[in-house]
């Protein structure tokens, strides 16, 4: 095909012109890509240098010692392997507490998130003018790291599972509220209209008109949150909120000679996380794809 086909074309539309434009564009894109890459590399390298210099131990020294601690733990756990089953039984209540914290905070957080999400979804909100307020509220709840609330509550309520539960529940409500409201935005409004025509209250409309549509997604998100919350509740235990994390800190702060306990806790935590990951991902697949594979 020649340019004669197009008749009288402007200079830029000849094949040469197009090619030149294209090459220029490619070059510009390469330049931008190269610059972005360069900035990224500079950020990574300088960031690493700064982090390394502000760390108590250096990176390369640490790398050599990396295996020391796990090695000691494993060696001691292996030496005392006869104790391991007894230790696991001993720490089982702590494990149950950790899982309970996660479960309660997921339930409470999901309930609060549900209400918040419906209140802040366009078209469904009870008070449409207040949707920005509820959205902001969810943003703040979501941005609040669990540890902040947990530490403050530990100061007031004392150590134990409840501060952790409240802290995780608040964050969960914010995080789930956002995801829920994204789902609810796509909900079909016809059932709601139908219910409105029968004179249903707002709560009835939501319960009967919206929830049946969004429930599978909501439950799937909640299960994912539950996985995340198990990890969070273990971490919060470490700062004094009970459960496995607390036991782990105790067994570590005893110093040498308690590594078999640490190993038992590592094992329990690892097993729990993997177990719940597997179970929840199976159910999530079933919920979102309709049937089990």
């Amino acid at each position: 095909m020649t340019d004669a086909t197009f008749g009288a074309t402007p200079a830029g539309h000849t094949v040469e012109g197009i090619r030149a434009d294209y090459m220029a564009q490619v070059q510009r894109r390469r330049l931008y890509g190269g610059l972005t890459l360069m900035i990224f590399v500079i950020l990574m390298v300088s960031g690493f240098t700064v982090a390394d210099s502000r760390n108590a131990g250096g990176f390369w020294d640490g790398l050599n010692q990396l295996g020391d601690y796990p090695g000691e733990v494993l060696a001691e756990a292996w030496a005392n392997r006869a104790n391991l089953p007894a230790l696991i039984v001993r720490f089982l209540p702590a494990l149950i507490e950790t899982v309970n914290i996660a479960a309660v905070s997921t339930l409470v957080g999901a309930g609060a998130g549900l209400v918040l999400s419906l209140l802040s979804t366009r078209g469904l909100a009870r008070w449409p003018r207040l949707t920005p307020l509820f959205r902001r509220l969810m943003d703040i709840m979501r941005a609040m790291p669990e540890i902040v609330i947990a530490l403050v509550l530990i100061f007031v309520l004392g150590g134990g599972p409840v501060p952790a539960m409240i802290a995780i529940a608040i964050h969960t409500a914010g995080a789930l509220g956002k995801m829920y409201s994204e789902v609810a935005e796509n909900a079909d409004l016809k059932p709601v209209e139908g219910l409105t025509s029968t004179g249903a209250t707002w709560a009835q409309k939501m319960w009967l008109g919206v929830l049946p549509q969004v429930a599978p997604n909501y439950i799937s998100y909640s299960l994912l949150r539950f996985e995340i919350n198990i990890r969070a509740s273990a971490i919060l235990g470490f700062v004094g909120a009970g459960g496995l994390g607390y036991e782990l800190r105790n067994s570590m702060s005893w110093g040498l000679g308690r590594f078999d306990e640490a190993a038992a806790i590592f094992l329990l935590l690892f097993g729990t996380i993997v177990l719940f990951d597997q179970v929840s991902s199976r159910y999530r697949n079933r919920l979102t794809e309709g049937h089990a594979k």
Binding site: F48, G62, Q65, F266, L269, F270
Partner: peptide, 28 residues
């Protein structure tokens, strides 16, 4: 991948802080 995810951030933090000492590098 399963192993890295299953050994939670808490345990990695504990193990790494033994080797690298406290500081931002350990957290990273």
């Amino acid at each position: 991948f399963d192993f890295l995810r299953g050994v939670d951030a808490l345990i990695w933090t504990v193990v790494l802080s033994r080797a690298f000492g406290p500081g931002p590098l350990t957290g990273a």
